[in-house]
Design a protein around this nucleic acid. Structure first.
Lengths: 157, 157
DNA sequence: TGGATATTTATGGGCGTCAATGGGTCATAT
DNA sequence: ATATGACCCATTGACGCCCATAAATATCCA
């Protein structure tokens, strides 16, 4: 599976529908479920979204935590609040009212790639939150320790 | 995959298109995705560019950090701002407006090889930024500690 | 070695296709 | 009835594909 990168802003219509960017949708070709899993972020005022296969990874990771522990209990909120939203014929999803409310979404919706997941923002909120993050990266000169390349001649299935 | 070296200046047309130098494009032969990932540098007034396989290394490296952690959040800005720009039939890419703005690009665009990545500059800005850097390296006689060749040999200190 | 010719690369513009958007209809569930 | 969701269609505007030309490089031959 590929990666979600970059961002794109699309319109939310009266019916609560919004087109998922073509680039993002393209990564769902091999997915069983043609649609996204969406849940509120508990860090920022945005929604998190991913494919079914990644949601299964989350569930598996939760199982690694001690059964009935506080951590497992708290983090399970992700699964509890996640909605399964199928694409319509045109590649749109319907965002439920409570999701629109928690993310403060109005007429415009910004899709932001985060690798294996992507986020759904009110454009102005994104600029307010992430603009400073870019500045922090600049001033603190954050560096990322890169993994060694997996293999020299990267051949894929 | 080979390495990006040297530099070349090409024209940006009215549509925002610019040819990627043939030398650079040649390194994309074994890539799944025929195009580049471009994102603003947070060190200099230029754009960074790389192939898909390198961007996947970045994403994988981010995944080594805990999900939803602060570090992961800050460093994700690279992935969030990276746009996927495919080559057209002639080997050109379209540079989005905001990228042209952040790098101050006008009619001419300078491609600068940086090994696994390359940069995209306004030619004048490059001369202003990098000229002094070259002078500094010369006067301070900078040295680089080389990694040992991967072929196994003696390991004496 | 020089000059003519062929090949490749860069550049510019027209045009068809497709993604995004908005609205309508029908079935189902409340 | 009213709301919700799945599908269909029409519009528009951006993007990708195509071709035509120019510039640069390589190739060939006298």
């Amino acid at each position: 599976m590929g990666i979600f990168t970059g961002s794109q802003t699309n319109k939310l219509d009266k019916k609560g529908r919004v087109s998922v960017p073509r680039n993002f949708r393209a990564l769902f070709d091999q997915e069983k479920f043609q649609g996204v899993y969406v849940f509120p972020s508990f860090r920022v005022a945005a929604l998190e979204a991913c494919a079914e296969s990644f949601m299964e990874r989350i569930v598996d990771s939760l199982e690694d935590l001690p059964l009935f522990s506080d951590d497992q209990d708290d983090l399970s909120i992700i699964v509890e609040s996640a909605q399964r939203l199928p694409f319509d014929t045109e590649g749109r999803i319907v965002l439920p009212d409570d999701f629109r409310a928690t993310a403060g979404l109005k007429s415009d919706v910004k899709f932001v790639g985060r690798g294996r997941t992507f986020q759904i923002w009110h454009p102005a909120h994104y600029d307010a939150e992430r603009g400073p993050a870019f500045e922090r990266a600049k001033t603190r000169a954050l560096t990322l320790k890169l993994r060694r390349p997996s293999r020299a001649g990267d051949e894929e299935a």
